[in-house]
């Protein structure tokens, strides 16, 4: 600063950069407190009326209707967009439900088909098994019959051999051949 010790050198108004002088008081008759300077009141009120009137006109006729319209449009837009989204969502939901039903139908059908196939196959296998068993049983029966007839035949042969042997033994012991009827009786008696 220009003055190192201003407290001791006080030329009043020296620091004019702080106090920009009182030359502006040319307009005001007195040095009264400016906000209470009544000589400017009328002009201030007139300018206020003009400025505020202009502002009111601009706000009332242009600005506020426009902003209102903007906000209204946006709200409308949002609502229609939301409605559209809602409609799309319900559509998607319906599609989802349809898909679910189709899927469960298909699953049920597939299950049915699988079950039917399984049943068919089981029945077929059963039939095959039964016919095979029948065949086997028949063969078994035939085989048993063969065995039985062969056994009988063999047994018949045994009787004959036994008769022949018995006749031979009796002939050797008694020297005379036994008659056929008594031999049969004796064989029957021993067989049982």
């Amino acid at each position: 600063m220009a003055q190192p010790n201003p407290l001791t050198t006080p030329p009043p108004g020296a620091d004019t950069q702080i106090v920009p002088g009182h030359t502006e008081h040319a307009n005001s008759h007195t040095g009264a407190f400016p906000p209470f300077e009544s000589s400017g009141f009328l002009a201030q009120l007139i300018w206020l009326a003009l400025a505020f009137g202009l502002l009111y006109y601009l706000m009332d006729k242009i600005a506020l209707p426009r902003i209102q319209a903007i906000l209204h449009n946006r709200a409308e837009r949002l609502r229609s967009d939301l409605d559209q989204a809602q409609a799309m969502k319900s559509e998607a939901d319906a599609a989802g439900v349809a898909y679910e039903t189709a899927l469960s139908d298909a699953q049920a059908k597939a299950r049915d088909i699988a079950q039917a196939t399984r049943n068919d196959l089981a029945a077929e296998a059963d039939d095959k098994r039964k016919s095979l068993e029948g065949d086997l049983n028949a063969k078994l029966a035939a085989a048993e019959a063969t065995i039985r007839s062969r056994t009988e035949q063999a047994m018949g042969n045994v009787r004959e051999i036994a008769g022949d042997t018995a006749a031979a033994i009796v002939e050797r012991l008694t020297g005379q051949a036994p008659d056929r009827a008594s031999l049969d009786r004796a064989l029957d008696a021993t067989a049982h």
């Binding site: 307009n27 000589s39 009328l42 201030q44 007139i46 300018w47």
Partner: peptide, 9 residues
């Protein structure tokens, strides 16, 4: 009353 266009206006 002084009528003037002031800086206030």
């Amino acid at each position: 009353q002084q009528l003037a266009f002031t800086q206030s206006a």
